[in-house]
Design a binder for these strands. Structure first.
Length: 346
DNA sequence: TCTGGGGTCCTAGGACCC
DNA sequence: TCTGGGGTCCTAGGACCC
């Protein structure tokens, strides 16, 4: 018997949930995002079905662009409560299996398992999720979380893949560094400046040199990641959020100070409601301002632990007052941070 | 096509104290 | 009269993920 990590990755999750409740959509290009109106400005695609992706539609793309690329697509509004519920169904199905479950998002989970036959267990995971929820997923098998996640990604949609320390070099070394989860475009560019372009080159790098460039934690972590290492703990304890936030990109830029203050007050009230629902106390309140030029600034202040809506709103307005606003504002955000540790009260 | 929303974690610099 | 360092707290920004 050996320990393995399985990564469960639901296929086109939001679109799949919509198709499940409206089976007549099966086989059609479906695009989920915004209010479901593809002509709406400043809204983007949350998820596209595979049929829509075939037309070049992908997450993060403006809805208007998606409409241009795929005029025949069915555009649906995003429905977070429905995705919460569907996700809970999937996680409940997974909990029935002999696994330790760590929820990693609406459409992702890690399973800690001890077995001689991880392939058989992976097949059982797929079958159970499909049978209980009607939803399809890919399953990746690995010795670390990054291995399991990459294994799942490689076989989407719907497959079962395996990646281990033994198969890592042949599978990963020739790939570009941004194939690693945690290495994005910026880090890839900084690595390229140093002649490091592939996972194999990063794996062979000196962690001390990278520490000097990327910092004492990030530098060595990048090398570890390139060697197939990484987190291998699967925690079943419920996740304690570090923060709650609300932000809005407005259909038209805001310019007037009173208008900005009113908008921040609305966001702060929403955050306060979320915080109250969590039963937690806030120790820091922050505000985000994105100008029409897309420059984004944040400011925050420490507060005495509170869950009082008026105090949270007051703090947000005080922080807003510290911004020099010299351009129209396209986005405002309010964020509340919780005290570290378990401060949950009734 | 001008570029969403909700998160996490890390880094760096200044203040302040010993 | 000038000069150290270390440690911690606070803040702003950035990178990344789904």
């Amino acid at each position: 018997m050996r320990d393995w990590i399985l990564h469960v990755d639901l296929d086109q999750f939001l679109a799949a949930v919509e198709i499940r409740r409206r089976p007549e959509l099966r086989g059609l290009p479906v695009v989920v995002g915004g209010n479901g109106d593809p002509t709406e400005a400043r809204k983007v695609v949350a998820t596209a079905s595979y049929e829509a992706r075939a037309h070049g539609v992908h997450s993060g793309m403006p809805l208007r662009a998606a409409l241009r690329r795929c005029p025949d697509a069915v555009f649906l509004p995003s429905d977070p409560p429905a995705y919460d519920a569907a996700s809970a169904e999937v996680m409940a199905a997974l909990r029935e299996l002999p696994v330790v479950l760590e929820v990693a998002g609406w459409d992702e989970a890690y399973l800690g398992v001890r077995t001689d036959d991880p392939q058989a267990l992976a097949r059982r995971v797929r079958a159970t999720v499909l049978e209980r929820t009607g939803l399809s997923c890919a399953v990746g098998i690995g010795e670390t979380k990054p291995q399991a996640k990459l294994a799942a990604q490689a076989v989407k949609p719907g497959g079962i893949g395996c990646l281990t320390y033994a198969t890592w070099p042949e599978t990963m070394h020739a790939k570009p560094v941004d194939a690693l989860v945690g290495v994005g475009a910026r880090t890839a560019a900084r690595l390229a400046e140093r002649g490091i372009r592939t996972v194999g080159e990063l794996a062979a790098s000196d962690h001390r040199e990278l520490a000097a460039v990327f910092g004492p934690t990030t530098g060595p972590w990048l090398v570890l990641l390139a060697r197939g290492g990484g987190d291998r703990t699967v925690a079943s304890e419920p996740w304690q959020a570090r923060s709650r936030s609300r932000e809005t990109t407005y259909p038209q830029d805001l310019v007037d100070r009173d208008e900005l203050a009113a908008a921040v007050a609305v966001l702060a009230e929403q955050v306060a409601r979320d915080v109250a629902a969590d039963g937690r106390k806030v120790v820091r309140v922050g505000v985000k301002v994105r100008s029409s030029s897309f420059r984004t600034r944040t400011k925050a202040m420490k507060v005495q632990p509170t869950r009082d809506a008026a105090l949270i709103r007051g703090a947000a307005l005080e922080v807003l007052g510290r911004f020099e606003i010299d351009r129209p504002v396209r986005l405002l955000g309010v964020r509340a941070e919780f005290a570290p540790g378990n401060d949950v009260t009734v």
